[in-house]
Amino acid sequence: MNATQSLTARTGNLFHRYANPGRFLRMGAKLQPWLTWPALVLSAAGIVWGLFFSPADWQQGDSVRIMYVHVPTAWLASSGYMGLAVCSLLSLVWRHPLADLAAVEIGPVGAAITAVCLATGSLWGKPMWGTWWVWDARLTSVLVLFFLYLGHIALIRAFDEPQRGYRAAAILGLAGAVDLPIIKFSVQWWNTLHQPDSITVTGAPTMSTSMLWPLGLTTLGFTLGFGAIVLARLRASVMESRIRTILAASRGRQSASPAPQPDSAAV
């Protein structure tokens, strides 16, 4: 028990070093260009490669190109929720203030990406399978993930007192993480209409390298882009909360001394 105590304490200290908003803003400003520009370059390269230079599939024809945007969004839908679950854990156990703000910002981005994943999958399914939608385990579990995102977005903003919203949303975020292994393994556990993964950790990919390259580029590019957008939103959110604190403090001073101060008048 002693070892775990010191472990939780140590990890807590490690996280709290980045809880200082000033330090976070300085680090975030340095990190931002390293996410934004590679994201733009890699995504553009991957999309152009995938649309114009990669070969058509022998069965699917050109509709295989939908994969180059569908697979990265599917990967991000899951890993974005993983990020949300980690923030929830940090919030519940360590009461980390930055984790709460991050959870607020990841939610809408993840929900939008999941919606794109579902829509692009549908656009592929209609010409290939012959249907827009089926209730198989893979598709249904991703739809559940989308609703989990929507629930999180609503819950974290539902309370007048933000702390209560953070707490409730963190519980939902952690509980919803149960859906992630279900999504991952749905195509192995049950027979589904959705095909199994072509790229696995253990086996060799069942995909031509001429298609793997653009897919790798868009996946990496979209992932960095997701990080860049979340970081930008989080920086804005930290700045906004700082603005609120400063304004509240100056309002407090004004009400304490009714005589208008020259400095606050300049603001």
């Binding site: 070969p55 022998w58 012959g130 209409l193 072509s198």
Partner: peptide, 18 residues
């Protein structure tokens, strides 16, 4: 009443298949 095609996980260029 309905027939759906199930795609497998193999992605192969047309020329290679031929």
């Amino acid at each position: 009443s309905e027939v759906l095609a199930k795609h497998d996980e193999t992605y192969m260029p047309k020329e290679v298949a031929e």
